[in-house]
Amino acid sequence: MSSKSSTQHLSRVNIIRKKHIRLTIAALIILGLIILAGEITSYDHIDGLLSIPAAISWLFSNMLFSAGTLANFPTVLRLLWETILISIVSTTTASVFALIFALLGSQLTQVNTFLMYVAKLVASVSRNIPVVAWALILVLSFGTNSATGFLALFFATFGFLVRAYIETIDEASSDSIEALRATGATYPQMIFKAVLPGSMPQLFSWTLFMIETNIRSATLVGLLTGTGIGYLFDLYYKQLNYEMVSLITLSIVVAVLIIEAISNRIRREII
């Protein structure tokens, strides 16, 4: 018995030792990549760390807004609300189209193989073009207006949600679909009796997640399309009005935190 326990102990020690060696090698590789990246880009990591206190001091001395700046707060709230609405509308609209393409692209709910690959290809192209690139492309066609921001968020959201919805459908509905197929159920019956009831909580969760993400992205899109809170941020930033920049940034952060808290609460209730 003692020999067997001793062997098991040695085996555990060897396993732990191998894990430590792997972790050490991984840490050394990461450290080497950091040093190599610094050499290639001529970036001094030590100078970067030493500059942090001075940067923090500059922020506190230049970006603390005064009472006079608060007079513009209603304008900030109005454009922030506009940005939030564009994010919500673009996400919810994209989710409807994403669900249709996800049903066509999922192996469990595909109509035929050709449409499945077409749906995945369209979603992949849409997903792999960054939202900033979408905004720049669409500005050339639609100009600087809210429609451009809506479409940029829509296309980027659509591609992401199609993939997320396909994975959700494949994971949550396989058993139910197989059971209904065995009973001779029609395609609409499989969708409304198995896919949607089994997947809806997770699909809704992904939609809420994208609303949170798009509120952040909408600020950046607004810089390019001249709309919403992003336009206001860009306007005051170019004027070097750091007090207004600070007020706008703080408003965005608070809005995102509030919406994230609401979203998390809803997700806990539905999942």
Rank of each mutant, 00 (worst) to 15 (best):
G38S: 07
L70G: 00
F114N: 08
A26H: 10
V13K: 14
T113V: 14
P53Y: 08
I84L: 11
A54E: 15
S124Y: 11
L136M: 15
A71W: 05
I100L: 14
S66C: 01
S6K: 14
H20I: 09
L85R: 09
L108I: 15
T91A: 11
A98C: 05
I34F: 13
M116H: 03
I86K: 00
S51M: 09
L103C: 03
L108S: 06
I88F: 12
Q110E: 14
D44I: 05
T93C: 15
L64T: 11
L77H: 01
I46K: 09
S90L: 02
V122C: 08
H9V: 13
R127D: 00
V118G: 00
L138C: 04
L36N: 10
R12F: 11
V96W: 06
L99D: 01
L28C: 06
L49R: 05
A98I: 02
A133Q: 05
A119F: 07
I15G: 04
L85N: 08
I100T: 12
M116Q: 15
L80C: 03
L28A: 13
F65V: 01
W81Q: 04
T75I: 12
T69E: 00
Y117R: 10
Y43F: 13
V125D: 07
S51K: 15
F101I: 03
T75Y: 08
R22W: 13
A37R: 11
L85W: 12
L31R: 02
L79G: 01
V89M: 06
A98V: 05
S124C: 10
F65R: 00
L59A: 08
A94V: 07
G105S: 05
L103Y: 06
E82H: 10
Y43M: 08
G105W: 00
F65I: 01
V122F: 12
P74D: 06
S5I: 12
V96A: 09
W58A: 12
S42R: 14
I16A: 08
K4D: 14
F114V: 13
A67H: 08
S90Y: 01
G32P: 03
Q110H: 07
G38C: 09
L121I: 12
L104E: 04
E39A: 14
L23D: 11
L28K: 01
F65T: 03
Q8V: 08
S11Q: 12
V89Q: 06
A123H: 03
H45Q: 12
T83V: 06
I88Y: 06
R78T: 13
M63G: 04
V111A: 10
P74E: 04
L59N: 06
A98Y: 03
Q8W: 07
P130C: 08
A119G: 05
N128Y: 04
L99E: 05
I35Y: 14
A55M: 13
F73Q: 00
L10W: 10
